[in-house]
Design a protein around this nucleic acid. Structure first.
Length: 490
DNA sequence: ATGTAC
């Protein structure tokens, strides 16, 4: 399986310090070349990610793909498509593929700011983390604090975060700073299976497991004070909350349901695939439309989930700090998806075109002036929230015109693994990760302590290196860096 | 990512 010794530096053509072309003739059948954003060091270390580069080539086989099969610097192997991959398919001649979105539909991130300083919460940090650990259930199969009837689920799937706000979980203005207003149009709850709804209903307001987390962070460095100020970030030490989670069992089940549909449709529409995990259907086909309707509904579920979590986080702060969340200025900064496919208008080779942009482990990064970003961010560009690992950093960035021109307005989604879960566990056998982090002032509560080794810094690239590539390549710009002080994990 | 294999 693994092609040992392939010399990628002779195959990939260096475009500049941050861009590497995978030529279209690398594999017969590629409709477009690949383009990988990475530093020279990352390309040299790419030997562990050979399968991911192979997947960049495979995605280029898909009908209707426009421009390039793109990969971000956090690229790693995924189901069919690489994680950290971006591919746009023409609306009329292109396909949509569940593998290009991922199992966790609308896995994404959100940042809530506060007006607290690190020293304000240090004395109550453990209490605060413990309270959140109780109110935001985490772990595989965890169930939330609210009960939603199956028939109510169609409302959740259509209204997304708006449903939560209507129920009293959140502030109306939260919706203005969520991608798509927290309720993407085109959701079709009828196309989400009963099984998916039954799995998802009890999980609303839960974090999940794996790399999902909720962190209390302190602003560690501000690169662009003016843009940071627009986001309500004013000083080093300011406390924010970073949430990373998705659509739980509902999205997973939806992906599974449609992979089965799409395997049949790829055959029916005679689509030649180098890997059956790229199963897809024409966007204009009934199967394609059904998947888009269901996937969009699942995306709305994830927005609703992160909204409910926000409510419980505000409540936990209020209870422990003893002040109203409004007094604490716990405003939502932004909420953005990094596993999604969306129909968008873009300019390509001088023409306006409509494409289905698959972002799998990739974040939308729209530029200043774009009509789809909130009015308050219109001048600075769309906020991009990039999680790192629990021992290092996370970043706040903004989208750029260059991203719009080159990557369909997209950027990376995180640090990306450098070690498999198994390898990380082997390396850190016998190490008490929670204790190690606590010595560094990071208080961790985890549902499953064995998971901490798999999620330790050693398992990930340094997100600062990844972000450097984006910044230097100009597809997003650094605004601020955060470091974790309290962590809740599945 | 995930009722981590119904």
């Amino acid at each position: 399986m693994k092609e040992v010794g392939k010399d990628w530096k002779t195959i990939l053509q260096k475009v500049d310090d941050w861009r590497w072309l995978l030529p279209q003739d690398y594999k017969r059948g590629m409709r477009v070349p690949g383009l990988i954003y990475a530093s020279e060091e990352m390309i040299e270390q790419i030997s562990g990610e050979e399968m991911a580069i192979e997947q960049v080539a495979n995605v280029a086989f898909l009908p209707g793909i426009v421009g390039y099969s793109l990969a971000m610097p956090d690229i790693h192997w995924g189901y069919g498509f690489p994680i950290g991959g971006v591919a746009a398919m023409g609306l009329e001649d292109g396909v949509v593929s569940p593998g290009g979105v991922g199992f966790d539909i609308n896995c994404g991130t959100r940042v809530i700011r506060t007006n607290l300083a690190e020293e304000d919460i240090r004395p109550k940090l453990k209490e605060l983390v413990n309270q959140i650990f109780r109110d935001v259930p985490s772990g595989v199969g965890s169930e939330g604090l609210i009960r939603v009837a199956i028939k109510e689920m169609d409302q959740v799937l259509t209204k997304g975060a708006r449903w939560a706000v209507e129920q009293g979980y959140g502030w109306p203005e939260d919706l203005e700073v969520i991608e798509g207003g927290g309720a993407l149009p085109g959701a079709n709850p009828e196309k989400v299976s009963r099984k998916a709804k039954e799995r998802g209903a009890p999980q609303l307001g839960t974090l999940g497991s794996g790399n999902h987390f909720l962190e209390i962070q302190a602003i560690d460095h501000i690169y662009d004070p003016e843009k940071a100020a627009v986001m309500g970030i004013h000083s080093v030490g300011q406390v924010v909350v970073f949430v990373h989670c998705g659509s739980r069992g509902l999205g997973h089940q939806t992906c599974e349901d449609y992979l089965e549909v799409m395997e049949a449709s790829a055959r029916r529409y005679n689509i030649h695939l180098p890997d059956r995990q790229l199963a897809c259907a024409p966007i204009r086909s009934p199967e394609g439309q059904d998947y888009i309707g269901a996937m969009t509904a699942a995306a709305n579920f994830a927005f609703c989930n992160r909204q409910l979590i926000t409510h419980w986080v505000r409540q936990a702060f209020a209870r422990v700090i003893g002040k109203d969340p409004r007094q604490l200025e716990m405003h939502l900064v932004y909420d953005v998806a990094h596993n999604i496919a969306k129909i968008e208008r873009h300019r390509w080779e001088g023409k306006e075109i409509t494409v289905c942009v698959h972002r799998k482990g990739a974040t939308r990064a729209f530029p200043p002036g774009h009509p789809d970003i909130p009015v308050k961010y219109r001048e600075i560009g769309q906020p991009v929230l990039v999680p790192g690992d629990m021992g290092r950093y996370s970043f706040l960035l903004v989208g750029t015109q260059r991203a719009m021109a080159e990557t369909w307005g997209s950027t990376c989604h995180g640090a990306g693994r450098v070690r498999s879960r198994a390898a990380a566990k082997r390396l850190l056998k016998g190490v008490d990760i929670a204790q190690q982090l606590e010595r560094r002032g990071i208080y961790v509560r985890a549902q499953n302590r064995a998971l901490l080794a798999e999620e330790a810094s050693e398992a990930y690239k340094d997100v600062a290196d990844v972000v450097e590539v984006l910044h230097e390549a100009g597809i997003s710009l650094k605004v601020a860096r955060m470091r974790p002080i309290g962590v809740v994990k599945g």
